[in-house]
Simulated assay, not measured.
Amino acid sequence: MRTMNLAGMIDHTFLKPEATEKDIVNLCHEAKQHKFATVCINPAYICTAAKLLHGSGVGVATVIGFPLGATMTEIKVQEIFAAKAHGAREVDIVINIGWAKSGNWEAVAKDITRAVEAAHCCGVTIKVIIETSLLTEEEKQKAAEIVKASGADYIKTSTGFAGGGATVEDVRNLKAWVGQSVKVKASGGIRSRETALQMVEAGADRLGTSSGVQIITV
């Protein structure tokens, strides 16, 4: 089991709309103390986090088109460039879920591919959120195939805002569908060490959670 550096697999996350600057300062302090992979925050706090984490080895991740995925592709692309300029190292972008549910997979693919191209153009790691709780099994597999074809770095289960989060079954399936070329990020509802380890065992390479300190200190 890949548990040697669980902290290094965690995106220490605080995406609530009421997040204050003090919350972000505390988040960054915890991330440095426990050596998490990144902090994952809303875009308005990228500069704050980047300054606090400079030289610490902890990255800054932010969200794009979040949490609905319904933003125009051009706006998502500009968000990615702005996030990089402000100090983000990684971006987590939501697919256009409505297009997926409509069966308009060509539009979904174009949206994701343009975002991936933008991220890689400026040296940013990109994770694509497919929002598993809103998709059927067939839709999840189709989304996974598109993410793999796009060249994205990660496929991510959930935003945590759609009434459902990561499941072991979804992580296992996503890993099977994307293979070794794309990593898997499990996110949403991961609040215990037991759950975190189950996700890793199922194939997760990164964990998105607001309970990182609790998970690694029990």
Score class of each variant (00 low, 15 high):
T3K: 13
N5C: 02
D11G: 11
T13K: 06
K16V: 00
K16I: 03
A19Y: 15
I24E: 02
K32V: 14
Q33A: 14
Y45H: 15
A50I: 10
K51N: 15
S56G: 12
S56C: 14
V60Q: 05
T62W: 09
F66K: 12
F66Y: 13
L68M: 05
A70M: 00
E74R: 09
I75W: 00
K76R: 09
Q78W: 04
F81Y: 12
A83P: 03
A88G: 05
V91F: 02
V94T: 12
N96D: 12
G98E: 07
W99M: 05
W105C: 00
V108F: 03
V108I: 02
K110I: 08
V116D: 11
I126G: 01
T132I: 14
S133W: 13
E137T: 03
Q141L: 04
I146Q: 09
I146D: 01
K148V: 00
A149C: 00
G151A: 08
G151L: 10
G151N: 12
S158G: 10
G164P: 01
E169A: 10
R172H: 13
R172K: 09
W177G: 06
V178K: 05
K185Y: 12
S187G: 12
T195P: 00
Q198N: 05
V200W: 01
G203P: 00
Q214P: 02
Q214G: 09
V218A: 09
